[in-house]
């Protein structure tokens, strides 16, 4: 475990070396601050005034989560190929480091870094809301941590695929997997909204096929995070909570990645 912790620390240190990561962070925070006016804008929907700050902040929260998912995909697609090309893999594995310590250390290091990045951006949103309303809505913190589960899933999937496929293909493949889940679960959620059920001419068939129930529920994890922000009841798809569903896939992907890497020649 000591070696694992060391490799996690080295991974974070390595990823924080390029100045571009700080630039990206500052630009992102800057964008959030520049658009702070949207939080207090006067929105009217169907002639009714809407308390915009909560709605806008929820949308911004989800956009940040999605953008960081994309960033995590881009960062993690080259973890192992870059290590192989620049000698890092040889440096670690020629020393008494077990392969699982190296693989998991690299993946968890990347996860912690992207989680911290996302957390800082979510925290910025929280501070903006606090400045506008004078209320500290702590649901955002919990919601941000919940969304980090999705990041870990994406990192695991990209790392596994990158052992068989070229970097970009593995990233696009993972994004494709995410899109299918988002369309499937998002569509289901949409069909069950009050507006659709009221306006639909005929009753909408919302029964789900087995694969849709078993598919990684990344969208539902974000929906669960959203329910923490709005403090509303969360309705899941299927019997299993989305965190358990995604957690199961993460464990499976981690085990498979370690297994495949163990067989790999360095």
């Amino acid at each position: 475990m000591k070696m694992f912790a060391k490799i996690v620390c080295y991974t974070i240190a390595d990823r924080m070396k390029p100045k571009s990561i700080y630039l990206f962070l500052f630009v992102s925070i800057g964008l959030l601050i520049i658009t702070r006016g949207c939080y207090s804008a006067d929105y009217v929907i169907n002639g009714r005034h809407v308390e915009s700050i909560w709605h806008v902040s929820r949308i911004v929260f989800q956009v940040i989560s999605m953008a960081i998912l994309l960033m995590a995909t881009m960062i993690s697609m080259r973890i192992f190929t870059r290590d192989q090309n620049d000698g890092s893999a040889q440096m670690f594995l020629s020393r008494p480091v077990k392969r699982w310590e190296y693989v998991l250390g690299r993946m968890f290091g990347t996860w912690l870094l992207t989680t911290a990045f996302m957390f800082i951006l979510h925290l910025t949103v929280l501070v903006i809301i606090w400045l506008h309303t004078g209320k500290m809505h702590l649901g955002y913190i919990g919601a941000s941590l919940i969304c980090s589960v999705n990041l870990l899933f994406v990192i695991c999937a990209v790392c596994l695929f990158s052992m068989f496929l070229p970097d970009f293909i593995s990233a696009f493949f993972t994004l494709g997997l995410l899109c299918v889940g988002y369309v499937s679960d998002g569509g289901y959620k949409l069909l069950n909204t009050e507006i659709i059920t009221v306006f639909a001419a005929q009753p909408v068939d919302t029964t789900l096929s087995t694969w849709r129930v078993l598919y990684p529920k990344l969208f539902m994890v974000q929906a669960y995070a959203d329910s923490l922000i709005t403090d509303t009841e969360f309705v899941s798809i299927g019997l299993v909570h989305p965190i358990i569903n995604v957690g199961f896939f993460i464990v499976f992907l981690l085990a498979l990645t370690v297994f495949v890497f163990n067989k790999k020649s360095i």
């Binding site: 390595d14 390029p18 090309n85 620049d86 000698g87 040889q90 440096m91 008494p96 077990k98």
Partner: peptide, 19 residues
């Protein structure tokens, strides 16, 4: 891994992470 505690290794055209 225990064998690698007492091994020093240098590869042909040794690569060092550039960062």
């Amino acid at each position: 891994t225990q064998t690698r505690k007492s091994i020093g290794y240098i590869a042909e055209q040794h690569m060092i992470p550039p960062y």
